[in-house]
Design a protein around this nucleic acid. Structure first.
Lengths: 345, 345
DNA sequence: GTGAAAGCGCTAACAT
DNA sequence: ATGTTAGCGCTTTCAC
């Protein structure tokens, strides 16, 4: 009989998740006391605390955050929705988010929207049903989607990288206009007059803003724009390739070209590599985004506008934390982080 | 007074999350019935179902999965721990995971271990406290870590991409040995006799296995190995660069070189691009992993061993689902997915 | 086919 | 400083 009991006890300890109740019993205190110890309540005597801590150790107790969440209505989990996962740019932002979250004991559920508004809405619903404490979104489109519904239901929301038109909301993103402007200005000061432009999907604010910066710089230096060397893609490599090709085939080849993001940069660089030796000698490419090592292999690419990717994620998470914790700060906060122009020559 | 009440009601409906209780009251049924409707219980009359559904609609009821989880002890969430987030290879796997999970109504918390065993253990603890239904890990090291503890506590676990020595566990990964073997064999059949090798961190099984494949192919074709053209890095771009440099400076330059993963490939290609025009003419690079477009810019790289990255993720998630659902399949399952050799010339 | 009621594991008043 | 107790919102027997 005694043996049987022991076996049973061992079973309990080893296999089943112990509860506060069991810990309380083992330590000879109430569940409230156990809870206080877990939550580092100040007014607990040292002896009691140690006794409880020992029981926790012995029983291998692990808190059940589900139960805690039900009681406190906090999950210490946020949602992050981005257009795709296998995208270095987005994932650098994700790393920034994680870095900040971990400090606060938070973790995040990641979802991809596949650049689709419909999917994005589905993911939002999913996250809301999982009771996440807040959501960070890199919007799939420029349309308002489900965001205002989140707002009404008081689910903290921070937009990242892209804004949504006619929808005011907390957001963290790069100063795209001035980032592009500085690059173009730099090129002009180096004597370039003919500067091509490969833009992204103009339904996205980031694409629009970079184009805006390009136009402003041309305008400020009295350089008229030439439609032949201005093309728009969709931020993916293939479109960069196509745009580059179109520009290369235009009558007046530019001296250099500005590409609006990393992936189109790769596409454009590929075109330059595989076609026309002439291009290689003359044309240089300036890229938005710099993923470090990779770009080094493009010999025509020496000027980069670096976005503080990780910082964007960190700031977004910080802002979200502030909202979750109900800090009184003006709404909305739109944080623009400065880019850095780097000449690798 | 009436007005006041209405306002209050609207408030309730708009702002607060309705509960089953409220839905039940509104529909004039019991909470049990509401629950049955939510869970698609068969034996509910059509009228009742519609009545409840309408109330759900009207009140904007959203299920509280926290409460459900507490009751059912299922969270419909799994954890995914990988060495880093900003890594296209890992994230392609993550996309496969997501694709499969979504079918089952699951989502995942993503964590990076930063290639550190300590951090990995912390993340595992975090996930266990969040009561995830299972965990997928790309191990940070070859050591056993916290995995056996998970096993003992019956938390389903699937390893991905790398195995852990002396620890038997469900796993999904590429057939690295034969993947490398085929590439080397192919090169030999094309007449190459001097084939260099750049390996990864040999503490990882994936690195070991690819080296093993290389050695086997040489052996099978009676080619003796030359230590001068065999170097080991750490799977990161910088080390690929360094290894390539060392090989380039060796007395007998190989005709071609096999690089064990994508990132080292980039590093190696960079070295070739920026040094020695001679190299460019003679040396070709064969890479493990193929991220598509990017590699196209490396003119010396034409042969690739493609891993089915997304499939690996999908299979891993599938296997985990089977375990979570308690399906009776032999333990452990080690699933090796075949690679594909692609000659882009 | 539907309702009553217990309880998942925790926290937080409110007592003492 | 510690205990008692009442739920958080849901599911699930067990009745009827």
């Amino acid at each position: 009989m005694i043996k049987c009991n022991r076996v049973h006890l061992i079973c309990m300890e080893d296999r089943m998740a112990a509860t506060v109740k069991e810990v309380a019993k083992h330590a000879g205190v109430s569940t409230a006391t156990v809870s206080r110890v877990i939550n580092n309540d100040a007014k607990i005597s040292v002896e009691t605390r140690e006794k409880v801590l020992e029981s926790i150790e012995v029983l291998g107790y692990k808190i059940n955050n589900i139960a805690r969440s039900l009681k406190t209505s906090k999950t210490y989990t946020i949602g992050f929705i981005c257009p795709e996962l296998a995208n270095t740019f987005f994932m650098n932002i994700a790393e920034g988010i994680e870095k900040e979250l971990i400090k606060h004991g938070y973790s995040f559920i990641i979802c991809s929207s596949g650049e689709s508004k419909i999917k994005e809405e589905q993911r939002i619903k999913l996250l809301v049903e999982k009771r996440v404490d807040g959501i960070i979104i890199i919007p799939a489109s420029n349309e308002e989607s489900y965001y205002s519904w989140l707002k009404e239901n008081e689910v903290p929301l921070v937009l990242v990288d892209r804004l949504v038109e006619d929808f005011s909301c907390d957001a963290v993103l790069s100063d795209n206009i001035n980032g592009a402007y500085q690059a173009i200005e730099y090129l002009i000061k180096k004597g370039k007059r003919s500067i091509g432009f490969i833009g992204g999907d103009m339904r996205l604010t980031s694409a629009k803003e970079r184009y805006e910066g390009y136009l402003r710089a041309l305008s400020d230096y009295c350089i008229s724009k030439n439609e032949d060397i201005i093309k728009f893609g969709d931020f993916h490599a293939e479109s960069g390739y196509v745009c580059m090709k179109e520009i290369a085939n235009s009558k007046n080849l530019p001296e250099c070209i500005f590409v609006s993001n990393y992936f189109m940069h790769i596409g454009a660089a590929r075109y330059v590599e595989e076609n026309n030796e002439l291009l290689k000698e003359k044309l240089t490419i300036t890229g938005f985004d710099d993923m470090g090592f990779i770009n080094d292999v493009f010999r025509n690419s020496v000027l980069f506008v670096q976005q503080p990717m990780s910082d964007i994620g960190e700031k977004a998470a910080q802002l979200l934390m502030s909202r979750i914790n109900g800090e009184e700060i003006a709404y909305p906060q739109v944080i623009r982080l400065k880019t850095k122009l780097v000449d690798k020559e």
